[in-house]
Amino acid sequence: MSGNGNAAATAEENSPKMRVIRVGTRKSQLARIQTDSVVATLKASYPGLQFEIIAMSTTGDKILDTALSKIGEKSLFTKELEHALEKNEVDLVVHSLKDLPTVLPPGFTIGAICKRENPHDAVVFHPKFVGKTLETLPEKSVVGTSSLRRAAQLQRKFPHLEFRSIRGNLNTRLRKLDEQQEFSAIILATAGLQRMGWHNRVGQILHPEECMYAVGQGALGVEVRAKDQDILDLVGVLHDPETLLRCIAERAFLRHLEGGCSVPVAVHTAMKDGQLYLTGGVWSLDGSDSIQETMQATIHVPAQHEDGPEDDPQLVGITARNIPRGPQLAAQNLGISLANLLLSKGAKNILDVARQLNDAH
């Protein structure tokens, strides 16, 4: 009898209710805020589980004197976190989706994509230029951005401005803007500013005609071990179906173009009346040469937790077992079709030249 009692006690200790789920994140304040929001949602869904947040620095956090596009290494903000995932030191990792490459290392998958916040870019102005827009900034004003995508589009749109690289986390960039006289304004992701509670610093939100956004911008991705079915089931509740389908289309477009950090590629997606609209573009580094096109596809946005595919093969690095396969494939095909259209119009040449120029500098 006593033996059975011990077995029952052991089973209770090993039951999922007692389990601590370890969540990996970057150390920056924004990353911690984003991770806290994901953990809060998981806690609400699984009140019996405990969650421990483990923060670590990544290569991208450490190399702050070089433009991201020049470092010449993929997975700048993800490699150390993936290493911890691989060694079973954490069970899942919360990322900004735009930091996750469209091809993940073997053994990993994006197990959830959370509801997207505003994906557009924002302009934050130096205190002396508050009330201005990019259009009304004085001639030769210097605007800071760490992104080739932003610089290429904005140089084309605002030729009277000069664009220079600015690195560091959000706090560091804002301090550089406010305390030094080098920059009249800087460009940042609206979602990051909003998550930090800095709505009052948003001086201008850039519309798609001015600057399309990065693939996955404004959404959070939760990376897990691809074979860890328990954790895949656990994080599945975080999937937002519309965000998922938009981001599958965007990531398929980028992957098929073979774009990345070192080339200016941008997108804009919208879901309306059962249609998914995808606009994508590529630019030369100075913005003088560009190709942009829009395509659409009829896609039914499923309700969360309709029964999805059981075999769960990944699409552009994403596993969404609780979302039907048909809409996911339709979104992926839309991204591939748009990429093929741009490639047929000469996108590869623009991107190759951009890559060579970026590598040469």
Score class of each variant (00 low, 15 high):
Leu64Val: 05
Gln50Val: 02
Ser344Glu: 13
Lys27Cys: 12
Glu80Trp: 07
Val93Met: 09
Leu134Ala: 07
Leu341Asp: 15
Lys27Tyr: 08
Glu117Gln: 11
Gln328Val: 05
Tyr213Arg: 01
Val123His: 03
Tyr213His: 14
Ala320Leu: 07
His305Val: 10
Thr59Ala: 10
Gly326Gln: 01
Val94Cys: 14
Leu174Ala: 06
Arg22Gly: 08
Ala152Cys: 11
Ser28Leu: 01
His83Ile: 08
Ser290Thr: 04
Pro138Val: 09
Ser344Leu: 02
Leu357Cys: 00
Thr133Ser: 10
Arg22His: 15
Met212Tyr: 02
Glu223Gln: 02
Val20Met: 11
Pro208His: 11
Ser69Asn: 12
Thr269Pro: 01
Phe125Trp: 12
Leu68Trp: 07
Gly274Ile: 01
Arg321Val: 03
Ser75Val: 06
Leu315Thr: 03
Ala303Glu: 10
Asp289Glu: 09
Gly168His: 03
Asn358Ile: 15
Lys345Glu: 01
Met196Lys: 05
Val39Pro: 01
Ile291His: 10
Val282Gly: 07
Leu357Ile: 14
Glu179Phe: 07
Val103Tyr: 00
Glu179Trp: 09
Glu86Lys: 14
Ile336Arg: 15
His300Arg: 05
Ser146Trp: 10
Ser146His: 05
Thr279Phe: 09
Thr133Trp: 09
Arg22Glu: 10
Glu135Trp: 11
Glu242Leu: 11
Ile248Thr: 05
Ala347Pro: 15
Asn118Phe: 10
Val38Asp: 03
Asp228Val: 04
Pro302Phe: 04
Gly218Thr: 01
Ser284Glu: 00
Asp286Asn: 14
Leu244Lys: 00
Ala226His: 12
Leu342Phe: 15
Glu135Met: 14
Ser146Ala: 09
Val39Tyr: 10
His160Ser: 10
Pro302Val: 13
Asp91Ala: 08
Pro324Cys: 04
Gln217Gly: 01
His126Val: 07
Asp178Ser: 10
Asp91Asn: 13
Ile350Arg: 06
Ser57Met: 01
Leu161Pro: 02
Leu244Asn: 05
Met56Pro: 06
Asn340Ile: 15
Gln304Arg: 13
His95Gln: 11
Leu285Met: 12
Glu223Val: 05
Ile54Thr: 09
Pro264Val: 00
Cys247Tyr: 09
Ser165Arg: 13
Gln155Ser: 13
Asp61Tyr: 07
Thr319Leu: 02
Arg355Ser: 15
Val93His: 13
Val316Leu: 13
Leu100Gln: 09
Val39Gln: 08
Thr294Arg: 10
Arg325Pro: 15
Ala226Tyr: 15
Asp178Met: 11
Lys79Asp: 10
Asp233Leu: 03
Ala84Phe: 11
Ala151Ser: 09
Gly216Glu: 00
Phe163Tyr: 11
Ile231Cys: 03
Glu139Arg: 08
Val267Ser: 05
Lys157Glu: 06
Pro264Tyr: 01
Ala191Val: 00
Ile231Lys: 05
Val237His: 00
Cys211Arg: 00
Gly48Ile: 08
Asn171Gln: 12
Leu278Asp: 00
Asp61Ser: 00
Ser96Gly: 10
Lys115Glu: 11
Val90Ile: 11
Asp240Val: 12
Pro127Trp: 14
Ser45Met: 06
Thr78Val: 10
Trp198Thr: 05
Asp36Ala: 09
Leu100Met: 09
Leu357Arg: 14
Ala270His: 11
Val235His: 00
Glu210Lys: 01
Pro105Leu: 08
Ala84Tyr: 08
Leu342Trp: 03
Asn118Met: 11
Ile21Leu: 15
Asp99Pro: 05
Ala191Asp: 05
Lys140Ser: 13
Ala189Leu: 02
Thr66Glu: 14
His126Gln: 13
Met212Pro: 05
Thr25Gly: 05
Leu285Tyr: 15
Val124Arg: 03
Leu85Thr: 06
Arg156Asp: 07
Leu92Ser: 04
Leu174His: 08
Val103Asp: 10
Ile299Thr: 14
Glu223Leu: 10
Arg32Ser: 08
Gly144Thr: 09
Ile205Tyr: 15
Ser96Ala: 12
Leu220Met: 12
Leu64Ala: 15
Asp91Gln: 06
Arg325Ala: 09
Leu220Pro: 00
Thr35Tyr: 00
Leu315Ala: 06
Leu232Ser: 03
Gln304Pro: 06
Ser96Gln: 00
Ile350Asp: 04
Val215Tyr: 00
Gly192Val: 07
His95Lys: 04
Val215Lys: 02
His199Lys: 14
Gly107Ser: 10
Lys157Gln: 13
Gln356Pro: 15
His126Ser: 14
Asp65Lys: 14
Glu250Ser: 02
Leu351Tyr: 11
Pro208Met: 12
Tyr213Cys: 06
Gln29Arg: 13
Glu210Pro: 02
Arg156Gly: 08
Asp359Cys: 14
Gly326Glu: 13
Asp311Arg: 10
Leu206Asn: 02
Arg150His: 05
Val263Ala: 15
Lys157Val: 10
Ala55His: 12
Thr133Asn: 13
Pro119Gly: 05
Cys247His: 00
Asp240Arg: 01
Pro159Tyr: 06
Val142Pro: 06
Leu104Ile: 13
Pro302Cys: 11
Cys114His: 06
Leu244Ile: 03
Ser28Arg: 01
His305Gly: 13
Arg156Val: 12
Glu258Phe: 06
Lys176Ala: 09
Val202Pro: 15
Leu276Lys: 01
Glu293Phe: 07
Phe51Pro: 12
Lys140Glu: 14
His83Val: 11
Asn118Pro: 10
Ala266Gln: 04
Trp283Pro: 09
Gly131Phe: 10
His160Glu: 12
Asp230Met: 15
His256Ser: 12
Pro208Lys: 04
Glu258Cys: 15
Ala360Gln: 01
Gly60Asn: 07
Ile186His: 07
Ile54Phe: 13
Lys98Pro: 03
Val202Gly: 09
Val103Met: 12
Ser141Phe: 08
Gln155Tyr: 09
Val103Lys: 13
Arg255Ser: 12
Leu341Pro: 03
Ile205Gln: 15
Thr78Cys: 13
Arg22Asn: 10
Met196Cys: 14
Gly216Met: 02
Gly144Met: 12
Leu220Glu: 03
Ala55Met: 07
His199Glu: 10
Thr78Gly: 11
Leu92Phe: 10
Ile350Cys: 06
Val142Met: 10
Gly326Trp: 10
Phe77Val: 02
Glu117His: 11
Thr58Cys: 12
Gly60Thr: 07
Thr172Val: 06
Leu341Gly: 08
Gly335Ile: 02
Ile166Ala: 08
Val215Phe: 05
Gly335Phe: 11
Ser57Arg: 11
Asp36Cys: 06
Ala297Asn: 00
Gly317Pro: 11
Gln34His: 05
Gly317Ile: 10
Asp65Val: 10
Ala360Gly: 14
Asn171Glu: 13
Thr78Asp: 06
Ser337Cys: 09
Asn349Gln: 14
Val142Ala: 12
Asp91Trp: 02
Val235Asp: 01
Glu89Ser: 13
Arg156Asn: 12
Ala226Asn: 02
Gly280Tyr: 00
Arg246Glu: 01
Ile71Leu: 12
Phe51Glu: 03
Pro327His: 11
Leu206Tyr: 02
His83Cys: 13
Val282His: 05
Lys74His: 10
Lys87Thr: 12
Ile248Ser: 07
Leu341Cys: 06
Leu338Thr: 09
Leu92Lys: 03
Ala122Gly: 12
Leu76Pro: 10
Leu100Gly: 01
Thr59Ile: 06
Gly60Arg: 04
Arg246Thr: 08
Leu64Gln: 08
Asp230Ser: 13
Asn349Cys: 05
Gln29Val: 07
Ala191Lys: 04
Ile205Ala: 08
Thr133Asp: 13
Arg156Trp: 11
Glu179Cys: 10
Ile110Thr: 05
Gly168Phe: 03
Gly197His: 03
Thr25Val: 05
Leu254Gln: 12
Leu315Ser: 15
Ser147Trp: 09
Ala347Ile: 03
Ser57Val: 13
His199Ser: 13
His120Asp: 09
Met56Ala: 12
Ile113Trp: 05
Lys157Ala: 13
Val130Leu: 09
Ala67Arg: 14
Gln181Thr: 13
Glu242Pro: 14
Arg164Leu: 10
Asn358Thr: 15
Gly280Met: 01
Pro309Leu: 13
Ser344Thr: 13
